[in-house]
């Protein structure tokens, strides 16, 4: 059960999908280079790896989404693939315009993901405030990711820095985020975040082994839609508490400062928000005493201690 229902759809399948995306993009890039056209947009693979890993994991776990999609998670599937298509146009824009585009695109994405909140729970003013605020959070996520990947792959690493750090940090943070979401009431959303971690690990390993830059700044669009959408879904539709949710966003924003050349203590401090978020979620679950060897088994096979039977026979 562990392999078939958890490891296969949220680790193995997304890794294979990411690898396929990287190989195909590599072949396409080589073909385009051979044709030597200066103006073509050469696919690097990072965005495709993330998007295809996310989509394949969702299909493996939840089947093909209904079209037109009704549920927020199904809509996220469509938005991630749209973000992949748009990222090839966005990459031509300057840094500032890329972030502005992220903000503008986040507005309809959030409006569709949170449609039921807007219809049933929020006033018009509250809806406007929520959507604008969350779009701003989306820009923070995009900035953290794009700054981090460009620094890691383009800047000359200072002497003595560990190239493994940059490769390890993003999958690790995503893995911890997956733990937070998975322990917040929705295994599906947690596993989808795990799929992003698996895809990111595959891309980082590919970069290390092939010694080529795979991530582009524009890939932040796919990353923001996928990760931001998952955090929003878990916050609004499952049980992710506000403080861990805010710490996850802070942790991913700090990716921008978390680079291989920075002092070790500073780099570890940048990990702190997500570690604290994971700690809070785990502590919350321990307090609720959700037992059992399997988190979603609710204490299976643990027989509760029965109260001692009081004899009604008087001696």
């Amino acid at each position: 059960m562990l392999f078939d229902n958890i490891v296969l759809p949220s680790v193995v399948i997304p890794m294979i999908a990411a690898l396929v995306a990287l190989v195909l993009c590599g072949l396409l890039r080589r073909w385009q280079q051979r044709r030597a056209s200066g103006s073509v947009v050469r696919p690097q693979g990072g965005a495709a790896a993330l998007a295809l890993a996310f989509a394949s994991a969702l299909v493996a776990m939840n089947g093909w989404p209904r079209m037109p999609p009704v549920e927020a998670t199904q809509r996220l599937f469509v938005f991630v693939l749209l973000a992949l298509a748009l990222s090839y146009f966005v990459r031509k824009l300057s840094d500032g315009k890329q972030l502005a585009t992220t903000f503008v695109l986040a507005l309809p994405v959030l409006a569709f993901l949170l449609e039921s909140q807007i219809e049933h729970r929020w006033s018009t003013l509250a809806s406007v405030i929520w959507i604008l605020s969350l779009a701003a959070v989306g820009v923070l996520l995009a900035w953290g990711w794009s700054t981090s990947i460009v620094r890691a792959s383009v800047e000359t690493a200072p002497k003595g820095s560990d190239p493994l750090w940059a490769a390890a940090i993003r999958p690790t943070l995503l893995g911890l985020a997956a733990l937070c979401l998975g322990l917040s009431g929705s295994a599906l959303l947690g596993q989808l975040m795990g799929a992003l971690a698996a895809a990111t690990a595959t891309v980082e390993a590919w970069q290390l082994l092939k010694k080529e830059q795979v991530w582009l700044k524009a890939d932040a669009l796919v990353w923001t839609v996928a990760s931001g959408g998952l955090i929003a879904n878990t916050f609004f539709y499952a049980e992710l508490a506000p403080i861990p949710a805010a710490l996850l966003v802070l942790g991913f924003t700090l990716l921008a400062r978390n680079r291989s050349g920075a002092p070790a203590l500073f780099r570890l401090a940048c990990l702190l928000p997500i570690l604290v978020a994971a700690g809070l979620v785990i502590q919350g679950e321990l307090q609720q005493a959700r037992g059992g060897d399997d988190y979603y088994d609710y204490g299976a096979l643990e027989t509760p201690q029965a109260a001692p039977f009081e004899s009604t026979v008087r001696s």
């Binding site: 549920e71 039921s116 049933h120 009431g185 499952a238 609720q288």
Partner: peptide, 21 residues
């Protein structure tokens, strides 16, 4: 009969009760 399981059934994994009440 198990509050945590109630939360799970209500989550996007199954009923998605907050979106489809």
């Amino acid at each position: 009969r198990v509050p945590n399981r109630d939360d799970h059934i209500k989550s996007p994994d199954f009923l998605n009760a907050k979106q489809f009440p």
